[in-house]
Simulated scan of single mutants.
Amino acid sequence: MDGLTVALLLFRAQGLYYGVPAFQVLRSAHEPWDPERILPGLPWTLAQDVKRENTGLFLHTTGEKPYSVPIEGMEDVVDASLSRIRPFPDWLEPCVLLRGVWGVFLRNGRLYILLDFARVLGQKDCHGFIGT
């Protein structure tokens, strides 16, 4: 696994740090996002202080309009070596995978929670990354 990498888009939301496979994101824009198309199942999208003016990630989907994910800000896009991504322990993995969390990535002293938006959607209409 030493030579294998995945392009991760790193961002902040509700004070935590996350990463997603970059190919799942259509675009990132500082523009109002459609509250009717917010990606369901993410804890920070339920927060009262999410503002429509926040930056949004717009996802590749097969539907008419892309889902949007409100975020506080972009961090970076990096090619992460798969050897630096840590999966969860076996006893915890089934629970977190159901919620779209597939690992953690340490970069510059900061821990990023890795999400798969397709899993969050139940793999219905977003390009998936991890297997079922």
Rank of each mutant, 00 (worst) to 15 (best):
residue 6 V to W: 06
residue 2 D to V: 12
residue 5 T to S: 10
residue 37 R to T: 02
residue 68 S to D: 09
residue 11 F to G: 00
residue 1 M to A: 14
residue 52 R to C: 01
residue 45 T to Q: 03
residue 122 G to E: 07
residue 122 G to H: 07
residue 62 T to Y: 14
residue 40 P to N: 12
residue 99 R to T: 10
residue 57 L to G: 05
residue 102 W to F: 15
residue 106 L to V: 13
residue 63 G to D: 14
residue 47 A to G: 05
residue 66 P to V: 03
residue 75 E to V: 13
residue 117 F to C: 00
residue 14 Q to A: 09
residue 94 P to Y: 10
residue 62 T to E: 15
residue 61 T to D: 13
residue 103 G to H: 08
residue 109 G to Y: 06
residue 105 F to Y: 15
residue 49 D to C: 05
residue 5 T to N: 08
residue 131 G to V: 10
residue 8 L to T: 03
residue 28 S to F: 03
residue 123 Q to A: 10
residue 122 G to L: 02
residue 97 L to D: 13
residue 131 G to E: 13
residue 68 S to N: 15
residue 7 A to N: 14
residue 81 S to F: 13
residue 38 I to H: 04
residue 120 V to L: 05
residue 9 L to P: 00
residue 64 E to D: 15
residue 95 C to R: 15
residue 77 V to P: 01
residue 91 W to T: 09
residue 38 I to N: 05
residue 127 H to P: 02
residue 23 F to K: 11
residue 132 T to K: 13
residue 22 A to V: 03
residue 112 Y to F: 15
residue 22 A to D: 06
residue 31 E to F: 01
residue 98 L to R: 15
residue 103 G to F: 04
residue 117 F to H: 00
residue 86 R to C: 04
residue 91 W to I: 09
residue 112 Y to Q: 06
residue 43 P to Y: 13
residue 37 R to C: 02
residue 105 F to K: 01
residue 2 D to S: 14
residue 115 L to N: 01
residue 60 H to Y: 10
residue 65 K to A: 15
residue 110 R to S: 03
